[in-house]
Design a protein around this nucleic acid. Structure first.
Lengths: 215, 215
DNA sequence: TGATGTTTTAAATAAATGATTAAATTTTGT
DNA sequence: ACAAAATTTAATCATTTATTTAAAACATCA
């Protein structure tokens, strides 16, 4: 009896013909897809780019993931979780004060973005192209957070939305603008990373200033 | 003697077969290209999308502009000038104080972006895909501006790069994040524009606070 | 080892898409 | 109105690209 390869897809985790390879073909493809999709976005990446990045035969993409679109959705959901989940966890931490949260966000999120510089533009672009990709629930997690509670009780006169958006703007925008910033005279020689790391210290200070000034 | 239509391209401005149409075919194509390219980016737009948006035969794109890429470069340069030129002119104004410049940027640039909400992500994406598109000279105009001089003389202790980047972040990022913000509970009903307009007043206040606090 | 199941490969297919052609239509100048 | 020039159209071409196929290679285990 003949079974098309696709038939076996659902059982693949139970049976593995080749075991103990350093890294499975499936994972090689996913890793290549992470790199290429986040670097170029869905429309600009060709399945051939991914196969090449993975060093594998083109047909394997469809063997393991059926279509470019299915593979993309998988990667996209990972990346959205990374982008929104990281920040949501930091803003919802129970054991820290408001200003500690600002510090934690500035510190940890900047580190994460420096390691994933393509992430912000990827997420923003793909959500814009297809807003349905993005579940409302996630946005709520940001805006209705422990952080929100704390700021409202300390400074009920400050609009929390503006405050959070300012924080995210100052952290994320420089990463988005990296290709522009880097071409400026002052940044010609790999100064960009140093510049962004400076902001880890400065952002908490700026927000401290805002927080302790009556308007 | 036969001349291929392309031959006539260079003379088109001298001779126009059809005059006084409401809007020329060439301009119809450019306007459609502006809309579609900025909405979807180069890779995701098909020449057929532009023809459809313009309500014209597909072949006319190549008749007037020879290739998708040539048309794109034309639009891209317009859009880059709009994005960088607008801000550079505001930051280099000779007749205004530092804080007036902050106000002018907040006010005018936010207005411009609300009318061109696709502009920031378009510019950032396309520069990232092809940094060569972006001439170093433009970035310099931002960072070495009248604004730079004024801030350095008033507050030599403040890093001008961080200051300008903060200003741009707070103005541009919300527009980039619109598809996310809009899906948040609080913004369900067309509150976004009102929210961004509030920032026209608030950004100058925040920067005033920073500017008048010793660190 | 050989039968069976699984993975990988090279080649083929089909759809999408940028570009071109030649003919038809419209405009212009006389 | 006529001829020449310019524009527009429908059809087609050529290339790129996602996907499928069938056979080969490999792994597992009785």
């Amino acid at each position: 009896m003949f079974f098309h390869p696709y038939f076996w897809l659902k059982f693949r985790s139970h049976k593995m013909a080749k075991k103990n390879k350093d890294i499975s073909t499936e994972e090689k493809i996913k890793e290549a897809a992470r790199i290429v999709f986040t670097r170029k976005g869905f429309a600009a990446t060709r399945t051939r780019d991914i196969a090449e990045e993975a060093g594998l035969n083109l047909a394997l993409l469809n063997y393991y993931f059926r279509s470019k679109e299915k593979l993309f959705h998988l990667i996209m959901e990972e990346k959205f979780e990374q982008f929104f989940g990281t920040i949501a966890r930091l803003l919802n931490d129970e054991g820290s004060s408001l200003e500690e949260k600002v510090q934690a966000v500035a510190n940890d999120y900047i580190d994460m973005l420096l390691q994933n510089p393509d992430l912000p533009i990827f997420v923003l672009s793909e959500i814009k192209n297809n807003p349905g990709l993005f579940s409302d629930r996630i946005a709520g997690k940001l805006m209705t957070s422990k952080f929100y509670e704390q700021l409202s009780s300390i400074r009920p006169d400050i609009n929390v939305f503006h405050f959070i958006l300012n924080l995210l703007s100052m952290i994320i925008f420089p990463i988005l603008a990296e290709p522009i910033i880097t071409r400026t005279e002052a940044f010609k020689s790999g100064e960009f990373k140093k510049f962004v790391l400076e902001r880890k210290k400065m952002i908490p200070i700026w927000f401290h200033t805002i927080l302790h000034t009556e308007v």
